[in-house]
Amino acid sequence: MSNFKDAVLWLLPDGAADVSPLAERLAEDHRVVILAASSTDARALAAVSPPLGQFVLIGQSSGAAAALALARATGEACTALILIAPVLAPLPTADTAPDMPILLLLGTEDARVPPSAAAALCAALPRAHPILIYGAGHALDRDRVEAVAAVMRDFIARRDKFIVRDTSDLLYP
């Protein structure tokens, strides 16, 4: 947990278009590995070279279920989980939820996974903290790149301590 520049493993749902501009943003100072959710298990992960070491796992839309499974399967290597507009049907039960900080990102304009889905998702994932991305739809990583990048980078760096502001509001010294 001491290495705050953990690698980021991003599981894309099947049929996802190209790489999100958000992944490019994260790649500025993190190693970002992007894999297809449907073909990624612990064995596929072991084949990544050089080895990932500790990593933060991102599951997006229908890639979220694979991310939850992988987070459970990889033990301490996966240090935190970020779920972007997760489509989870059925919802996992709380006793199978990964015991790690979970950032849950939902777009306020997302008709598929609307903000009202936060309650059930948080009940299923007791360590999840929802952040609503104002004005973003289901592809929230594309709709508001700067806003999503800012909160994700902060979460990757500080995990659940990210609710405490650490940037200055000082106007003029």
Binding site: A119, C122, I131, L132, Y134, A147, A150
Partner: peptide, 15 residues
Amino acid sequence: QPQPFGWQGRFFEFR
């Protein structure tokens, strides 16, 4: 919202 939540807005930001 029935549980704690954060807001990543354009003009307002709350964790």
